[in-house]
Computed example of a mutant assay.
Amino acid sequence: MSDSSRHTGGNTTSRSRRRGYRGLSAEELRKQRHQRLISAGTALFGERGYAATPIEAVCSQAKVSTRHFYEQFGGRESILHAVYDALVAEMESIIRNSLTSGRETLTQRVADTIESSVFFLLDDPRRGRIVCIEAVGVSEAMEKKRRETTHALAEIIRRYAELMADAGTLPQRDYRLPAVALVGMFNELVAEWLTEQTGLSAAEMAREAKILFRAMIFGAQHYEATDGSAPPLDENSA
């Protein structure tokens, strides 16, 4: 064999080591398996429930071996965290796009954003079940993640409430706690729709969340700004 043949053969062997199944690299295969596992976790946790879904079921649906599963995740809760994070990231993307697009007033954009967020969780009920039901009470680490998500979403609402206050739509005050309360309210609305017979479609429930937000905005316009020194409201001023 000539030097050139040996050289060519060596490159072919080297390339074959770098390429895996169907011509994909090891990293590309790893990413594909990761995405299939996330999709399978979303489907099974959202349909069967987290507690009723063993790792083997996730691997079977994703067509991934348990060995490859443990190369990417530490266990069942680990993939729940990843599924939850993926859903929250998708919802945050919807929120950012909705808040920054269109020519509607700021109040209308915020209301439409809330409607879009709730609809995202209900249009595919598996999303809402994972975020608002299956992730609840799993562990201290999962609860910490849920609180962080609540505060992150509440911070978006708080910032836009301050912009509305600057525009004169809302009184000047600290909107951190009202924003947290709104996020909690929407979580409960989603859970209610998923577990009870509300008689409303997903789109109707999303509009209900929008109506509640607008009711809060209009109601807040009738109260004086709070600075911590105002006297408590009596029954005649409420």
Rank of each mutant, 00 (worst) to 15 (best):
M164L: 14
R126G: 04
Y160P: 05
R146H: 07
S65V: 13
L122K: 10
V118E: 01
G128Q: 03
S93R: 08
L122T: 05
C132G: 03
F73G: 04
A141M: 08
Q72D: 10
E143K: 11
E134Y: 02
E92F: 08
V118Q: 00
G75S: 10
S93P: 02
D112M: 09
V136C: 11
L153H: 10
V64T: 13
I156H: 06
R109F: 09
R158C: 05
I130L: 14
M91Y: 01
A57F: 03
M164S: 10
P125K: 02
R158A: 11
D85A: 15
K144W: 12
E71P: 02
F73C: 15
K63S: 15
G74I: 15
L122I: 02
C132P: 02
E77V: 08
K63D: 15
S65W: 08
R129F: 09
I156A: 04
E92P: 01
S93V: 03
K144Y: 11
F119L: 12
K144H: 11
V110P: 04
R127S: 05
S101D: 05
S78T: 05
R103D: 09
R67S: 06
R96E: 08
T107A: 15
V136S: 13
K145F: 11
I133S: 05
R126D: 00
G128R: 00
E104I: 05
A62E: 06
A62L: 01
V83Q: 11
I157Q: 01
V110K: 04
